[in-house]
Write a protein that binds this DNA or RNA. Structure first.
Lengths: 286, 286
DNA sequence: GATTATTTTATACTGACTGTATAAAAATTT
DNA sequence: AAATTTTTATACAGTCAGTATAAAATAATC
């Protein structure tokens, strides 16, 4: 990613989580980044576009870590689900993201609004599918409303904790607590056939569809070619492209490279989507 | 209440729920109310103060209706709880309040922020105490976190419903569904002794303490004296003051007057707090 | 009914904000 | 070395919240 763009994102991120989104003016960002106004508007059409770019990359980081956490584990293990829920809570805490979500979720700005709807939809879909993984297909009719249950309960407990205690939030305890509560309530709910949302479905969100393992090498190759100036990243992506093309890709090597890439803050969102897709295919490799 | 102040509140309310809080400028409010800037700042120190005044009166309306709904009913009836939860949902729907809560809850403005913390605390305390009413004192150690459960679940289901369906939200179905889920989960939770928040308590919010039945007549009388210009309200408050002072106040009459007052949009928040207190004492009357 | 006090209006102003525009300077690419 | 792109500095338009003030309208008091 262009260093100026990265500078701006870093500065904006720092300001947003400290002062909050609204109170941080574009001028503040420019001063912090040591960059002029023209440059800012060269990369972002508006302040909210800048915020969305930040959220996008965090979302991608969460998804990658969740995929990594499930790797080699049984998908129906409730503890894996708890661990994955914990990943979001942990990242939100570490990066102080609550105020960012807050600014976004209930924003009046139509672009931010629809962005947050998309983010929300993705999260609900992901939790729903994990609920079916864990509790079996008899849980499917109740998965969506229990995704809402999980999401809402986590959110409220975090909020509540901050009002009742000055101690650090026990995030792991929280996520496993919520999963236990989920387990209890969903079992009874299935038995009672008690449903609210019923058969209604969320409008499909993008990004959930998989890029096939066959397509990935060419796409990665195409991307690698754009990375001439970033020697390190270029090497890694180039390697992925060729390795995934051969008969039996070396899984451990691929995973290692993915981990390195996942920790690289410089990468474009376009690339990080590709990386997520590789993660998803990882357990298909020998 | 001063007619100009009422004009401003009505105009602001209309704009806030249609355009949202942030996009409504003070100038918009002035135009809508047909009032000049000086007048606005004569009654409200800022735009957010105006919003808080609106929220305050709605909160009071909700609390009064909830008290009325429980009147003469058994406090441990889960259906009464569902009905009371429904009251908030219904009022929020009717008055399109979601966007208002949204603007407030996650605001950066420190005054709004602490106001919303207070509102939130009151709601949590109220739900908690109702949970103990319904599920008995063995539910007490779990009441607070289940208040968070109820609040978060309701919120999420409303949000979800709006994404999956264009139909009107089935609010009554929602509230009774959540109460059933609460019933299921809290029973298992008590059995499992599984708690997250533990013994931690919310910092006490004001307004929860009762004004005694003995004090009320004098306080009402004092207030009535300030209402010389509002003949109708003055009559009603004056009546309450004298009626509550006598040996055996006529309950039906008092209740009727309270209902009339509850529907009066003109009353000051100071008075509406007194009215709430009378509601709370109502079942002590013969 | 006249005088005094209060409320309301109209208007101008400050300072902060987002986003646009533009010409010159700096850095990159060809 | 020349051409192209990026970056800077700066000025500008238009919006906003909130302050200030003098004049007009209304209400309260004697």
């Amino acid at each position: 990613m262009n260093p100026k763009k990265q500078q701006i994102l870093t500065a904006a991120y720092k300001l947003f989580i400290n002062k909050g989104y609204n109170p941080s003016s574009i001028q503040d960002i420019l001063d912090e980044a040591g960059v002029s106004k023209g440059t800012f508007y060269n990369y972002f059409g508006s302040k909210s576009e800048c915020l969305m770019a930040i959220m996008e990359s965090i979302g991608s980081e969460i998804r990658q870590q969740r995929l990594a956490a499930a790797l080699g584990m049984l998908t129906n293990d409730p503890e894996v689900l708890a661990e994955q829920l914990y990943i979001r809570i942990k990242l939100n805490l570490e990066k102080n993201l609550f105020s960012l979500y807050e600014s976004i979720f209930y924003s009046q700005d139509p672009e931010l609004k629809s962005f947050s709807v998309k983010q929300y939809t993705l999260e609900m879909e992901w939790i729903s599918s994990r609920i079916v993984d864990v509790f079996g297909k008899e849980a499917a009719p109740y998965a969506l409303e229990n995704a809402a249950f999980v999401h809402g309960y986590v959110q409220q407990l975090i909020h509540l904790w901050r009002l009742v205690s000055i101690d650090e939030l026990p995030a792991e305890k929280l996520s496993s607590f919520v999963v236990r509560r989920l387990q209890a309530t969903i079992t009874l709910q299935i038995a009672a056939k008690d449903s609210f949302i019923g058969k209604l479905k969320l409008p499909i969100a993008t990004l959930s569809e998989l890029i096939s393992l066959e397509e990935l090498p060419t796409m990665l190759k195409a991307y690698a070619d754009k990375l001439k100036t970033h020697a390190n990243t270029h090497q890694l992506v180039q390697f992925l492209a060729t390795e995934l093309a051969i008969e039996v890709p070396r899984k451990a090597l691929v995973e290692s490279v993915l981990t390195t890439l996942a920790n690289d803050k410089q990468i474009e969102s376009e690339l990080s989507i590709l990386i997520e897709q590789v993660w998803k295919h990882l357990d298909e490799l020998a």
